[in-house]
């Protein structure tokens, strides 16, 4: 009994980590490879989740949907919608310094959250969308099927992102990150490459959102608070090693271990401390992020080449 409970927890843990690993890989395309700052990960994550939820969930008179499309259609649509939003933001900010992109992504994520919170017809507001089916096999043992699916997805995304990194395309992105003027002088269309990277990364985040919706089966705006969907992903990538795809996955595992480990600790506290405990856990992850930035800016697995944005000698 206890063993099966532990096993069930392990399945849950690995599925969650996998979804976060995909988010971190998406961010790595933007930040690690290209040097773009996306503080609106939660927005793309939410768009992906809601897209598939609306397309695949059963009918509910309170909001649009009830199409009951298969998972594949939902996931594909999630990739497309989050990618399209990224095209819009990217086109506005692609010529500007990355600070502007950071600000714009905060804005878009907040607005996306407001939309899903306020537009009853679309997203059922704060009550959220329920009965999102598990793909392929919904019922007894679906957790194992889902875990297999999500692990396969991590593998595919890792393969794609790693290929992109090593391909000439990825080399151009790194060149842009390290020396934009020289890359431009070499005749590369810097803006186009940047836009492609931003859209590619955001589409991956949308895909992770779709997986999340099918994993939990219910989504509401609360799940897309920036703390959980944006900040933790940043902590994962920075701790794992910006620019290194293996590092992104390792960071997801380690940070999620810390996060859920502290959750177990917090669960032992009396219930009146529950809110304080969750604040303390965010505080802890924040401090961890800063310590990594200060003491080991290259992360656990450094990028496999000298980092230009690592600290210079004082």
């Amino acid at each position: 009994m206890e063993l099966s409970g532990l096993f069930g927890y392990l399945v849950f843990f690995l599925s969650t980590v996998s979804i976060y690993a995909i988010l971190a890989l998406g961010l790595n395309v933007q930040w690690g490879l290209t040097g773009q700052i996306n503080i609106g990960i939660a927005g793309f994550f939410a768009v992906g989740a809601y897209t598939t939820a609306i397309l695949t969930a059963g009918p509910n008179a309170a909001h649009v949907g009830g199409f009951e499309f298969p998972f594949v259609v939902g996931a594909a649509a999630a990739i497309v919608t989050s990618g399209l939003i990224a095209v819009l933001i990217g086109m506005i900010t692609v010529n500007l310094r990355s600070d502007y992109l950071a600000i714009a992504t905060i804005g878009i994520a907040e607005i996306i959250r407001f939309v899903f919170q306020n537009e009853q017809w679309l997203s059922h507001g704060v009550r959220g969308i329920s009965d999102i089916p598990r793909p392929f096999h919904d019922g007894q043992g679906s957790g194992y099927v889902f875990l297999a699916l999500v692990l396969a997805c991590v593998a595919v995304v890792y393969f794609l992102v790693e290929r992109a990194r090593l391909a000439p395309w990825g080399r151009v992105l790194r060149a842009i990150r390290d020396n934009e003027d020289a890359t431009e002088a070499a005749g590369k269309n810097v803006r186009l490459f940047r836009l492609q990277a931003f859209v590619f990364g955001s589409a991956i985040m949308g895909f992770a959102g779709a997986l999340y919706a099918h994993f939990i089966g219910f989504i509401s705006p609360d799940a897309f608070e920036p703390v959980f969907a944006t900040f933790i992903v940043w902590a994962m990538l920075i701790a794992g090693g910006s620019g290194n795809n293996k590092g992104a996955i390792l960071g997801a595992i380690v940070v999620w271990l810390v996060w859920s480990g502290t959750e177990t600790l917090a669960a032992r506290l009396p219930p009146e401390y529950a809110t304080q405990a969750s604040a303390a856990r965010v505080l802890l992850v924040g401090v961890l992020l800063e310590l990594v930035l200060l003491l080991r800016p290259q992360g656990m697995l450094p990028e496999e080449r000298p980092r230009p944005i690592a600290r210079r000698k004082d």
């Binding site: 990355s98 505080l283 930035l293």
Partner: peptide, 18 residues
């Protein structure tokens, strides 16, 4: 401060959460 300015931005984002 001797790092790239965007590292400072990310650090300030982390500090916001703290």
């Amino acid at each position: 401060r001797s790092s790239h300015p965007v590292i400072l931005l990310i650090s300030s984002f982390g500090y916001a959460l703290i």
